[in-house]
Design a protein around this nucleic acid. Sequence first.
DNA 1: TTTT
DNA 2: TTTT
Lengths: 140, 140, 140, 140
Amino acid sequence: MAFSLNKVMLIGNLGQDSEHRFTANDISVTNFSVATTRSYKGKDGSWVNETTWHNVVAYNLSDFYKEKLKKGKKVYVEGRISKRDYTDKENIKRYITEIVAENIIPLDGSESNGKTSDEVKSTNDVIDNQNKEAVDDLPF
Amino acid sequence: MAFSLNKVMLIGNLGQDSEHRFTANDISVTNFSVATTRSYKGKDGSWVNETTWHNVVAYNLSDFYKEKLKKGKKVYVEGRISKRDYTDKENIKRYITEIVAENIIPLDGSESNGKTSDEVKSTNDVIDNQNKEAVDDLPF
Amino acid sequence: MAFSLNKVMLIGNLGQDSEHRFTANDISVTNFSVATTRSYKGKDGSWVNETTWHNVVAYNLSDFYKEKLKKGKKVYVEGRISKRDYTDKENIKRYITEIVAENIIPLDGSESNGKTSDEVKSTNDVIDNQNKEAVDDLPF
Amino acid sequence: MAFSLNKVMLIGNLGQDSEHRFTANDISVTNFSVATTRSYKGKDGSWVNETTWHNVVAYNLSDFYKEKLKKGKKVYVEGRISKRDYTDKENIKRYITEIVAENIIPLDGSESNGKTSDEVKSTNDVIDNQNKEAVDDLPF
DNA sequence: TTTT
DNA sequence: TTTT
């Protein structure tokens, strides 16, 4: 079935600097968490803030994006919901829900990084590599 | 911080009939699961189908929608990602990720249900009740 | 500035069969229009239906999709807003707003077309060709 | 038909300060334009930037949002595509495509405006007034 | 657990 | 011009 849609769009701030590693296949993997907050009026009429933390994983990000993904920075993330399970050290099966990023837009001021848009290229180009076959078999 | 975005859009099929219950506060709660499938080329060049099951919860759905949400039916769901934890019967803390539906569009043929659009009203109207204060304090 | 987002998502029905042509560069161009309808309560309390027609253009669609895009069929279209101008036969400058499709999902029953998913491939693969350089220079 | 979807999501910068007026019915109307830019590789291999200007209209915005919508500011706009026609001063029938905003998120640094989130309330609350009947009969 |  |  290729006739389905699984799309997530987030705008929020990073809780920590993003973390980077490489797989045995030399795929770059970036992880970071994004907070979104919903405000609603509670029973007593006061506003309540409810924060949700989203675990995001991005493959083959360029250094340009890695440097942008720092603690506190605001970012737009578009991707898909992915679920996987693992067994923790206490031998309990755990389930994880992650957002696999397919497009990232840094939303904070540029702080004059000296890069031209020619150097940066489109975000889409940077991330579309995730669909390469090797990535699809990553062990996570 | 109300300046964030947490949006999910799904198109997929229900794995089972939706389930309905009422809370002590008389809030109608509907649960169902939606499958989305991603196809990608595996290492050996053949197409691989990867299905993700999404748990969806909708508040205060009208009977019209409840009747549409049957096993196998295709549906569009727009909502937000919500996470909560609970302790299972073995006293293990478990985390759940759900989609809280804010808009639902049935995508299957009408099968001539005889309702006029005046009777049905807008989906948005039906679901926007979820933002009523009572709902925000549901115990789940 | 590559740090922007221009995304459109439609679910609606085709008003007519899609039309197909090829450019001098041998790029396949598909055009069709999609209706979306919004219902709202008018001043007198009765429901009013307001239909908007969206002009959609898709590049390099496979025959599989071309055959699906027939009058009356329901479809999901994801793409971007594009504007262009031209001078009509009365020498008046006209402006056109189109949706350039980047993903299409047929939403109507399959009517047993006999194709396997291996033959069909992912919609994304089919349409991602639009980003090839040749397409970006199409004379419209 | 309430079974359709017409959704637009933009992230871009305002070309000018937003403009505000009131209708005879005392509905606040805010207009502004947002630029999005797409980068693609042209035939000669160099990057080409293609900017699209989107006309956005928002109803019943609070002063808080009006003050944020200034020239150059970055903003997220979610809404629907709306088309209307009018006859210009040369008696030519013209067609306009606008984005009717249903959610707006200012994306630039807060510059310490001294408002608490309690004062600001949710963006959604601010804008959902647009669905009030009076608005639906605005003469444009 | 669905669907094509 | 579609659909429910």
